[in-house]
Amino acid sequence: MIVGIDHFVLTVVSLDATCAFYQRVLGFERVDTPGRPTALAFGNQKINVHEISRTFEPKAKSPTPGSGDFCLITDRPLDEFLAGLEANHVMVELGPVERIGAQGPMMSVYFRDPDGNLVEVSQYPR
């Protein structure tokens, strides 16, 4: 049975711009290992980042920058998280709004990364 997500891949225009964004805005750690995709690590998961001109095999049939749409969970209060977005000049596209996640009702905010990928950050009630 599947019990979690280890990683997923984002195809991007600029590896450096994307990594800088996720490091600055979400506190992810950039991991560069020779011969492997660059990764953005957080918790016990990661996002592999493939620059459109330098993808790794095997890959999606039609990797395209800006086609990602995913949800991340925060343990910070959303007001605090929103203040961090504002401090980093990240425009909120929607939220906070109530959504239903894998574990039930949650509050979510939506914004875009440098490639236009839609990032949803959510908090479950405590």
Rank of each mutant, 00 (worst) to 15 (best):
G95S: 01
E80Y: 08
G104E: 05
M91L: 13
L94A: 14
S108T: 11
D79E: 14
L78D: 02
I100M: 15
D79R: 10
L72A: 11
G95V: 00
Q103C: 05
Q103K: 15
F81P: 00
M107T: 10
L94S: 14
Q103M: 10
F81I: 01
G84V: 01
L82A: 05
V97A: 06
A87R: 09
V97H: 07
N88Q: 05
D79P: 02
V92I: 11
P96G: 01
I100G: 13
E98Q: 15
M107G: 07
R76Y: 11
P105E: 09
M107F: 02
S108N: 08
T74V: 10
P105S: 06
G104T: 03
F81Y: 06
E98G: 11
G101P: 02
S108V: 02
D69Q: 12
R76V: 00
L78R: 04
P96H: 10
V90M: 07
L72Q: 06
L85M: 07
I73R: 09
L94G: 05
V97D: 01
F70K: 11
L78E: 05
M91E: 15
C71Q: 12
P77A: 09
P105Y: 11
L94W: 11
N88R: 10
A87P: 03
I100D: 14
E98H: 14
D79F: 01
G104C: 04
E93P: 03
E98T: 15
E86Y: 11
E86P: 01
G95T: 00
V90N: 08
E98S: 15
L85N: 02
L94P: 01
E98P: 05
V97W: 03
G101Y: 12
L78G: 04
F70V: 08
G84R: 10
A87L: 05
P96R: 00
L85Y: 10
L85F: 04
T74A: 03
P96S: 05
H89C: 08
T74P: 05
A102E: 10
I73A: 11
E98C: 07
H89M: 04
E80D: 15
G101M: 12
I73P: 02
D75Y: 09
P77Y: 00
M91C: 13
V97L: 04
P77N: 06
E86H: 13
C71I: 09
D69C: 11
A83C: 01
I73Y: 11
L72G: 08
I100F: 14
R99A: 06
